[in-house]
Computed example of a mutant assay.
Amino acid sequence: MHAIHRLARGGLARVRQAAFGARTISGRLAALRIVLVRLRLILPLALLSGCQLSPSLPVLGAFFPDWLFCMLFALFVAVLTDAALAAAGWRRQFEHWTLVAGYGALAVAAALLSWLALFRN
């Protein structure tokens, strides 16, 4: 606990100054070692915070994460776009890798936008 308190009082700024002010490699390595030791003490505290509100939706008594619904919506959008391109006859104008990359990018964009639109807390 002592190391965390010292780090909060500006210990990291002193270590950074020592690391960039050191003219030798051994001085910089010593400063880096100090930073890594302090991060080892602080990182578990950050991982203990967790989520305050579980991002899930109840469906028929079971709870599902909201990102699952966003991914299902994104898959639906990609399949619908593929069907529209096939119906218009435009799908054969593109190479295979272009379609794979395009559908992947479309699915990611649709998932992220649907999550922003529907599940922002």
Rank of each mutant, 00 (worst) to 15 (best):
M1P: 09
H2G: 07
A3Y: 07
A3D: 10
H5E: 14
L7V: 14
A8V: 12
R9F: 15
R9Y: 14
G10A: 08
R14C: 08
R16S: 12
Q17E: 12
A18S: 09
G21A: 07
A22F: 01
A22N: 03
T24V: 11
I25T: 14
I25E: 13
S26V: 14
R28V: 08
R28E: 08
L29Y: 02
L29H: 07
I34D: 08
R38L: 15
R38S: 11
P44F: 00
L45S: 10
A46Y: 01
S49K: 14
C51H: 06
S54C: 09
P55Q: 06
S56I: 00
L57Y: 08
L57V: 12
P58H: 13
V59Q: 09
V59C: 05
A62N: 08
F64K: 06
F64S: 07
F64G: 01
D66W: 03
D66E: 07
D66P: 00
D66A: 04
F69R: 03
C70W: 02
C70M: 05
C70L: 00
L72I: 15
A74M: 12
F76V: 09
F76M: 07
V77C: 15
A78E: 10
T81K: 04
D82N: 05
A86E: 05
A87Y: 11
A87H: 10
A87Q: 04
A88R: 11
G89W: 01
G89T: 04
W90C: 04
Q93C: 15
F94N: 02
F94T: 03
E95F: 05
L99S: 10
L99N: 09
A105P: 09
A105T: 15
L106A: 00
A107T: 04
A109L: 15
A110P: 11
A111P: 03
S114G: 03
S114H: 10
W115D: 03
L118M: 10
L118V: 11
R120P: 03
